[in-house]
Every structure is written in C-alpha cells, then in structure tokens.
Design a protein around this nucleic acid. Structure first.
Lengths: 201, 201
DNA sequence: ATTCTATTACAACAGTTGTTGTATTTTGAC
DNA sequence: GTCAAAATACAACAACTGTTGTAATAGAAT
C-alpha cells in the first residue's frame, strides 16, 4: 500500500471515530485504535493533528465534488441540476454519515478562523459550480431572466444545508421522497413561465 | 445578585468563550476567566460541566422562542409567519453570534446521543409552533389545502437552518434583504391561488 | 457585634491530550 | 540473502482537562 493510500485509510478512520465518538473525543490514540495501528503510524504520515484533520475534511469534500460530477454525467437541463443537488443530500445511510462528519467539522470551526476560511473556500467552489449550471440553464431559456444567479446558488446551497442538518438531528425528518420533492419545488420556482408547464405534463 | 441570575451570567460567559475560542477550548478555567471569577464559582452553581453546558444551550434556545413570540405579537396572517421566521434569522451581529453558538453546539452533539436527543426535542418544539401557525393559516384559507403541514414546517426550519449555517461560514453571504426575499418567496409557494395575487398588488 | 450561610478562591488530584524520540519490524531493490 | 529505507510500535514528556476538598471571604439576619 502506497503512502497516499495509507493517508486515505487514516482519513477514513478519522471519519468513523468522529461519527461514533464525536470530534471532541477524536484523539490520536482513538484514531490509531480505529485504524488498528499505533500513533506512530499517524505521526509518520502527518506532521501533526491539524494536518491530519485538514486532510480528512478535504477528502470528504473531494468525495462530494466527485459525486456531484458523476451524477451530472449524461444529464441535461433541469434534470441535470436536480441530480447534482440530490447527489449531496442525505438520502442513504452513507449520505447521512457524510453529513454527520460535515456538521461536526462545521461546529468545530467556530472560533477557529483558519478553519472557517477553509470552509469559505469550499463553499465558494460549490457556489461557483452551481452558478455555472444556472448560467447555462439561463442561456438555454430554461430558467427565468432577471435572477441573481449568485443569490440563487447560495439559496440552493442553503436548502441542501438545511435538509442536511435536519437529517443529522433527526434521521427520519425527511425521507428521500420528501427531499426530492422539496428540491424539485424549489428549482421549479426558477423555471421560466413558458417552460414551466412543459415540465409538468 | 440571585442564584439564578448568576447562572445566567455564567451561561453568557460560556457563549462568549465559544464564539472567541470554540467549544473545544471552552474549559472550566476559560469560562471562569471570562466571567472574571474562579472555577469555584462555576462548580458552586453547577454540578458539573455537562449541566453547565446544557444550561447554556437551553438559555440560548429560550431566547429564540422568546424572540419568536415577541415578533408574532400583534401580527396576523402571512406577515405573522414571516415575522416569526425572520426573527430567528442572522440579520444582526447579535443574531450571527447566536447562530455561531448554535452551530458549535450542533457539531459538538455529533457522536453524543444524549445531546442529539436534546436537539431533537428542541426542534420538535419549534416544528410544533410552526405547524400550529400553518394550521391557522390554512383554516383562514390563506395557504393551500392539501399541504403536508409537518413537512412544510420542517422545510421552513430547513430554510432557516440553511441560511443560518451559510451566514456562519460567510457573514456576507446573505444580507438582510436577501434573507427576507428568500423567506417571502418560500412562503409564497404555500399561498392559495386566490389570495396569491392579493398579496402582491 | 455575632453567627450562620452563601459565595468565592485556590490548590491538588488523576486522567487525557498532542508531540517527540528511540527502538523495532517490515518492505523492496539488488 | 543483504542491506538500506520506509513504516510501525511504544514509552515518556509536559501541558491541559474536569473534579474535589478545604479554606477564606462576604452578606444578611438576629
């Protein structure tokens, strides 16, 4: 197993410990135990705990981007945007795990300017991706003119964040059908009048 | 100063430390220093750190309920629901602080079943309040029939949570006008056809 | 003024934390 | 098989944690 692969193993061990024990109790020893190794393995692959933590959250986010990209493949129009949004929603147990880790990191970043800045960068990337999708939908006359696309991208991200945190607090709060319904309804708000009826035959 | 008032002082010191240092670095000694007292004061008013922490988050939530109730006073119809929702949004620096603490606590609860259950109870209360509002609006034929009011209450909470987390990550992401716009647009989705146009003259 | 109680201060405790340094083991190329 | 390098284990460290117990102080009631 290569150096980089081992780092990924460590990151995934971090995720599991966070979900089971919480970030506050995610110590070097706990991570090592979860990995089935010693702390020496951790310090050999990461300079310190901060680097390890940053890597773990970065991996999680890269997975999100990869999922979004994969779910967009071959899709077009409104469906494409819908699929991308829904790919990051907590519809499966695996999706829930990701959100638990995400919420834990977000709370952990409060009071730590360095981590908040990292989150800002990641949300900026996310926003940029969605704005790009909205621009193309607007050019294709699928969604209305006169929309503030940056605001609309932020609103979509907020919708996703809201559903995500809701499910973290109570996993049965939104079932997959309801999540899909809310996303569709929100996106429908943006659709141009002319094509609005064409989309619900 | 009475016993209970002192407990509130302690809770507010906890809030300040959380915002400045993060929940992970909110130790008994840090809280005492922020309060301008010693740890003895803390242990005298609270059995242990858990009770202290629970009290601090409970106070925060009671404030939220009080703000919602106050903002509903004298209001009726759609405006009443709008005001209640907007009263919990991070429109002011004080509102932002509350959301920072809230997000910190939420992340801290991951992996701690006890705290997650507390959050579930609080969200259940919030949902109940909003469902009640929706029931009355529906009875008054202001919002459509055939709506799943529990789902709609959860959706409104999700909207608020999404905006809140967004502002925590980037305080300039949603200015007050945009927050109001998004809330109004969401609520407008629920309004009955007959009164939809009556509301935008 | 005295006495009793509530409040506060402070030191000491056992436990846990991240980090470091030193061994030991494993791996891979020749 | 040899040997150098990478990977791992483990103990020791200083710093910090929540909690406890004891002593000092302040306030109020009589």
């Amino acid at each position: 197993m290569s150096y980089d692969e081992r780092r990924v193993d460590v990151a995934e061990a971090v995720w599991r410990v966070i979900i089971r024990e919480g970030l506050g109790r995610t110590s070097m020893r706990a991570i090592a135990q979860e990995l089935g190794a010693s702390t020496g393995t951790l310090t050999h692959h990461f300079r310190d705990k901060e680097e390890l933590t940053l890597f773990a959250i970065d991996r999680l986010f890269k997975n999100v981007f990869a999922d979004m990209k994969a779910s967009a493949q071959g899709q077009q129009g409104i469906d494409r945007l819908e699929q991308m949004i829904m790919s990051v929603l907590p519809m499966s147990p695996r999706g829930l795990s990701g959100w638990q880790i995400w919420v834990a990191f977000l709370g952990y970043a409060i009071g730590r300017d360095r981590l908040i800045q990292e989150h800002q960068k990641r949300y900026a990337m996310l926003r940029q991706i969605i704005v790009q999708e909205l621009v193309e939908l607007q050019a294709a006359r699928v969604i209305r003119d006169g929309l503030d696309l940056t605001l609309e991208a932020n609103a979509l991200i907020a919708l996703v964040d809201g559903i995500g945190t809701g499910v973290v607090i109570n996993p049965e709060q939104f079932d997959p059908e309801q999540q899909r319904y809310l996303v569709r309804r929100h996106i429908q708000t943006l659709v141009a009048e002319s094509s609005a009826r064409a989309n619900k035959p």
